Structure formats: C-alpha cells, structure tokens
Computed example of a mutant assay.
Amino acid sequence: MMRVHRDPFEPIMCVLEADSPLAEYRKITDEILKRMPDEDRYPRAAAEAVRSFLMLRLGLHLGLRQKNLRQLLVCPRGHFPTPERRLKDMKRGELRWSDRDRGWEVLVPANAFKNANSSFLGSKPFRLILPDLLDLYKYLNAYIERHCGVLLAGADDPGTLFVKTVKANSKDAAYNSTTFYEAWRLTIQRYGIYNPYTGRGAIKGLLPHGPHNVRDVLATHILKQTGSYEQASYAIQDTPEMIASHYGRFLPQDKAALAAKILNQVWEAAA
C-alpha cells in the first residue's frame, strides 16, 4: 500500500498564495470582532469570542509554537512579574505589563523553546512588546480583567493567559495540546471558513487547521515581502536553513522586482 503524504500547507494554501498572507489571515480576527456577542447579554459567548480573537492575534504577533502559546502565563497589571529564573525553571513564558515600555511584554526563556540551542536564540530569552494596534490592548485588558473570570466560573486558575470554558463536568481550566488544537480549529471553522449559504466566514477556500499553521503564514508573508530567509526566520524564532527547506517554494520568483519595489519606495516618498 502506497503512503500518501498530505501537504501540510494545504489547509491554508489560499492564504499563503495571497500577495499578503498576513493581511489575508488577519481577516479572521476582523470577522470575530464583527460578530462579537453582547457581553452584557451573553457574557460567556463574549468571553469565548475574545479568547478566540486573542489566540489568533497573539499567534500572529508572536509566531510561537503551540506549546509556548498555550503555556504562556499572565501577570495582571499592577502585580509583580514572575522572575526570569523562575520562568526558566518552569520552561514557560509570561505576558506582563512593562512600565518602562508602556505596553504588554511577552518574555519567554530560551530553554522553553523546542529549538533552545538554535543560533536564533543564542540562549537569550525571547522578548517582545505587543503593539497596541487594532484594539489589541482593549481586548487584552478586558479579557484579563473580566472575561477570564467568566470562563473559569469559580474553578482554579491555572495562571495561563488562555483558559478553557469550565463546565459542570470538567473543573480543569488548563488547555493541553489536544484541547488547544481543537479550540483553534473550532475558531477557524466558526469564523475563518467562508460559508456561501450564510455569507459568514472570512476566507474562501480555507480548510480547518491548528495553531501551527500561523507560523507558516508569518514565515511566508515575510519571505514574500523581503525575499529573505533570514528575516523570515526571525518571525518564527528559527534558522534561515529551516526556512529555506520548508518555505523555499514561496520565495518570489522575480527577485529583481522585489528589490525594485523596496528601492522605488524612496522615489514614491519623494514624489
């Protein structure tokens, strides 16, 4: 019997083939906001929608692997963040407020990464200030302050940013790899896949997929915009060699046109 290898890019090929894969995938987050339930009338549904929105937004800003995103701790504003040494012991990252940068910071120790010894990390922690763009902070603050409590429904808080909806038959609010994958996939089915009968869903041709594909979107987007394996590797904390082997097929064919586009920006700005 011949084994058939499925193309891992197949579910999101319509996104990867777009001129701007990130702009295409971002449409899903717009769809979530467009269909956001009324928090006063439907608090749990609103909390779940905000959680879906933040899963995708943080996935797109951070480019982390599923495990790192799923295990990301949160330190509410006004609290003392977890010391870096403690995060190293736990092999987990944390979202915390940075007074110095006036923004939400994500800090992940190098040893939390699957490729901890790669040249990208160089044993230094991953640190990024999330951009306060397109209502990210508005929903992040609301989620941490209100929605999380609704989802927990009195259950023990696992301390992670993303928590499951606690129901009567399950008191464990922590995601595992399977439930986190299912939550992402459900978000894509609900908001991402265009349904011609209802007119809902952001992207025609999209198929169900999990959180790993968001890394494909980021790497491909930067590769298409810059033609640089190195810059694409920065987006997903990996090496240029890995980018070349995985995403080489998406490298723009006309590299001269790519260079001209960058140079032409100077002339366009002066015009």
Rank of each mutant, 00 (worst) to 15 (best):
G63E: 09
P37Q: 03
F113I: 04
K27H: 01
A269M: 10
L87H: 06
G205I: 07
R41A: 09
S233R: 01
D135F: 10
R86K: 14
M55N: 03
R215W: 03
K261F: 07
R92K: 15
E241G: 10
S118I: 04
A257W: 06
P76Y: 06
A219E: 05
E145Q: 11
K114R: 13
L207C: 05
A257C: 09
A155I: 10
N213S: 12
N111K: 08
V4C: 11
Q237A: 05
A110D: 11
D30Y: 01
E241S: 09
P158R: 13
P11Q: 12
L107V: 14
M90H: 06
D40E: 09
K34W: 00
L134R: 14
N195I: 04
M36D: 01
L107Q: 09
I236M: 08
Q71Y: 04
Q253D: 15
M2H: 14
E17N: 11
Y143K: 07
T187R: 02
C148I: 12
T165A: 14
D19F: 02
I262T: 13
T198L: 06
A47P: 01
K138Y: 11
D19P: 00
V50I: 10
A47W: 04
K167E: 15
M13Q: 12
I193S: 08
Q265I: 03
A260Y: 12
S98C: 11
P21R: 02
A270R: 09
